[in-house]
Design a protein around this nucleic acid. Sequence first.
DNA 1: CGTGATCCTGCAAAGGTTTGCAATGAAGTA
DNA 2: TACTTCATTGCAAACCTTTGCAGGATCACG
Lengths: 392, 392
Amino acid sequence: MGHTCVTATTSDEGAAVPVTIRDVARASGVHISTVSRTFSAPHLVNPETRVRVLACAEDLGYRPNRAARALITGRTHNIGLIIADIANPFFPPLIKAAESQARHRDYHVFVADTNEDPTAEEELVHALAKQVDGVLLCSPRMSNSLIEQLSREVPLVVVNRQVTGLPCVLMDVGQGARSAIEHLVGLGHRSIALLGGPRSSWTNREMRRAAGAAARAGGAELTMLGPNAPTEVGGSAVAEQVRRSGVSAVLAYNDLMAIGLIEGLDALGVRVPQEVSVVGVDDITLSRLTRPKLTTVATPTGAAGRTAVDMLLQQDIESPRGARGSGAGTALGVRRTTAQVMLQTDLVIRDSTGPGPYARPARPLAAPRGPGPHCPADPGIPTAATGDAVAS
Amino acid sequence: MGHTCVTATTSDEGAAVPVTIRDVARASGVHISTVSRTFSAPHLVNPETRVRVLACAEDLGYRPNRAARALITGRTHNIGLIIADIANPFFPPLIKAAESQARHRDYHVFVADTNEDPTAEEELVHALAKQVDGVLLCSPRMSNSLIEQLSREVPLVVVNRQVTGLPCVLMDVGQGARSAIEHLVGLGHRSIALLGGPRSSWTNREMRRAAGAAARAGGAELTMLGPNAPTEVGGSAVAEQVRRSGVSAVLAYNDLMAIGLIEGLDALGVRVPQEVSVVGVDDITLSRLTRPKLTTVATPTGAAGRTAVDMLLQQDIESPRGARGSGAGTALGVRRTTAQVMLQTDLVIRDSTGPGPYARPARPLAAPRGPGPHCPADPGIPTAATGDAVAS
DNA sequence: CGTGATCCTGCAAAGGTTTGCAATGAAGTA
DNA sequence: TACTTCATTGCAAACCTTTGCAGGATCACG
């Protein structure tokens, strides 16, 4: 497979000499419990002793074994983050926000990718269950009932999915879809397609619902296309279908699909936005880099990550699992407050949407920007003057 | 922060009833050791007993506590994957490949992001050390000596960095940079800039070295610009500097910077590739989506992920850490074979490079591209006829 | 001097699992 | 029948840490 082995040596490396609390105790002449307290409850140990112990620990390179600690405290100070597809640029900002928020609270985040596979999702929750204090489930693809069931195994916070009885962080894609449709209708489009995403996606259902209602209200016809893979290839694959359908505008499940679709249409010789307008969802960085720049519904991914971590930790603190009392907890039931947070979305108008067949004719040359509210304008940097000026 | 609290209820949820090996033992009327063996050494237990135990386990919803198991076996069946920046599209393919490879071997992967911060890197290795069997360090930003030191705490495999004595997976960016420079020189460029990445990046040093040599060999002048942040903003930030420097071609540290640079040049009214040619490194998906499509050095990210996991697991199997013998291992030293693998890179020529000031005049319309050996080829869509036709 | 109170420290159990060793019983061999 | 072998299971220690409890020392106060 095109690789060349440059070197291959066998060396005597100092093995990982695992230094435990016992070694430190021996070295500093105190009992192991004192060493333990030096780290987990310093105020309980004599300052002199403390410095001695710390010195020895430093000397020996001792580091508390978090796994062993977790075994008895029931808290690992880790949180799991399960993601449908790391390659989707929608997620990295969420991941980073979650990580930074977690770090502030002295938690570490373990990310895992499921490849949009519900089975992998379930398996990962199980694998993570005992190694983390809670799991953030982002855009899950499994069923609500399975999620509820898993939530009895490990505290869960769900992102981009509404599960009653569980803490959820939602983005108002309904509102977003509505704005998008209204925007398109306002531009004079009356025949619009909705490019659906994965069938099991909550976001997908919400968008269909809201977009349908908005189209009806605006007197436009909405064609549902899908389900499709929420990727560029998923988008470009339906280009032909879009063209045949004769719609003048498309709202895609996400930016990746929108971009793929534009590519596909381009390949078919269909120009965007002159012949077909395209709107995405997410506002990933990429949507500002493609040509035409993508009109899209911006979702607050960073805020979602932060909020989710907060909700998880809050819930966690209230109910420390695996308490010392051991077996006593039989079906005791823990009071758990579950909140659902809805984050706002915003329509960002760029260059992939333009006037449709029913646009009111432009006034000769009054407004610097024709009839259609927006012409490519191509705000390489400044932009600003974009989103307003909608006619009709 | 623009969010609306939709619901907030307090409910009685069945708490996580932790069912242990003991519960299963009680239920099936055998000793816990038999239950343990049922899972970890099935051939040692009577088939009849086995099915009974399994039935009870299934019934109670028992799952082995991996943390506890790890405590005694010394193997967690997890591997850690430390990444400089998840938002860089270079990494997801690597992550996915590593995950899939690990899954085949019954391992799980925990990904962590360091935000290009060496301190975070070190801290993460420590945090992961006892919870994983080994760590993949991707594009590390810390010093070699620190890496060596950390490798005594937990088995390490380093990607995109050469550390003597440690297993490394490298990509031949030297060869890649050479090809890129040769390509540019062949196109008639004599004044080329190298857009450097992070100072502490091995890749960065390799590129400088190889590009410098290739430029000298080709009679071109190479200007070093940087270090810069390996991101789009890092790229667009130096656009002005590039213009002032008067070079006719640029080799960027990675695709993200190349794309940012093109954006920045575009904003300054400098056209690519007509006035300046740009080459990136990585061949991320995005490089096929921007206009012009990016000429770039493709790196085998998937192969790197797979190889790294293989190397780690192989090394791990040879030397199971924390063996039962406890204290006996004092400075015993474990024979550890360390190989270094070099993966090939490939220059992919697209539309962001074109003839330079010293190009041999194109024959009227014979070859689609001037002097350069390669024509767009461009598997993407048509478009093809883009970058050429430049006179002079 | 007696009585608490306060600080510090040690003891030992606990957490869930694995595993070397020994015990049991049955089957096979001489 | 006596002895060996084998399969199956139980026992208990070990992994590393935390933590309730109790003991010892010191000190202040009455």
